[in-house]
Design a protein around this nucleic acid. Structure first.
Lengths: 170, 170
DNA sequence: TTGGAATGTCAACAAGGCTGACTTAAAATG
DNA sequence: CATTTTAAGTCAGCCTTGTTGACATTCCAA
């Protein structure tokens, strides 16, 4: 708010958006926005005995059905012991199904059950609604910029892990 | 990646950025980018006995020197018991100074010491460097859009709390 | 057949959230 | 002036989610 339009490519003014003050504002915006981003799912999860860790597992299993545990580990960036606790809960509650691999029987392929898909939908609906509102508020041009900055902010291994996840078929 | 330029204001194509797929991509980008966003400070903090909670306290005390504990609470959105544990550590380690209020002696005003400022600088440098790189990568137009979407994603109470923090003088 | 990879499990621990109860001091209010 | 409210701090206990380390099982591959 009240930022005096960074220049569009003439002289030193084009670097105005790189001042410490601008960067600090970006950092704080990121902090507050992430809280808003997780607020809605957090409320739903709190009603059941779940947390964000469960949400993340459900999200990515839904995104890439049949993904292996190892795959999920590298996506989520946690230890297998940590993920295992979460998966065990989801499996025993009947939200996730773990199938022994066909070509490699050591691997377990993960799928959402109908019940799991129902929760995923409810979490995702809430999160998408906020995202949609923010996108609508900001406009298509802003959304382009938003994604471009976010992608530039990721580590390269994150992008690789994500790409790997998408390859994993059933 | 490989997104076919959403239309710039003609017909229904201008709403292409609101499809579920686009929204899901935004959600995932947010997740991965936030990890990148915190990765550098996390590494520095891990060397000392600190975590993200300490970083957040240090950040906002630096941002609004003299802010009160209550103020900080509403900004950070945690309980006083949780914040107190963190503040106690920072004060006893000589990074933060707590001064009794002048007009209201119940209040404690918080300041960074030289040592605290040194850590803040090191954390902030790391985070700003990544932010700067991302901004540079994406360009000024994208940065505008980035901030616009993030701000639209915040809860209104977050913006209020943030504004309140800025008012708090020494 | 043996080594190593993938998975799962047990135990222990820490950070950082939370609630509830309680104290102290000071301000505000009747 | 007496009472209530507010700001801050503290103690105890609990939960989630992360961590290490050790170890068993299964099974592919050299």
């Amino acid at each position: 708010m009240a930022e005096g339009r960074p220049g569009q490519g003439f002289g030193g003014e084009s670097l105005l958006f790189l001042t410490d003050e601008q960067l600090r504002q970006g950092i704080e915006a990121m902090f507050f926005a992430y809280r808003g981003f997780t607020a809605d799912p957090d409320r739903i999860l709190a009603e059941m005995a779940y947390g964000r860790a469960h949400h993340r597992a459900i999200h990515f299993i839904n995104r890439a059905p049949g993904t292996t545990v190892n795959n999920l580990l590298s996506i989520l960036g946690v230890t297998k012991q940590s993920l295992n606790r979460v998966l065990r809960a989801l499996i025993s509650d009947g939200l996730v199904e773990s199938r022994v691999g066909v070509t490699d029987k050591r691997e377990r392929h993960l799928f959402l059950t109908d019940k799991g898909r129902a929760l995923e939908t409810s979490l995702s609906d809430a999160q998408r609604a906020r995202m949609r509102a923010a996108y609508k508020d900001a406009g298509p041009e802003a959304v382009q910029g938003f994604k471009r900055v976010l992608e530039a902010m990721m580590d390269s291994d994150m992008r690789r892990a994500y790409a790997k996840l998408r390859e994993t078929g059933a």
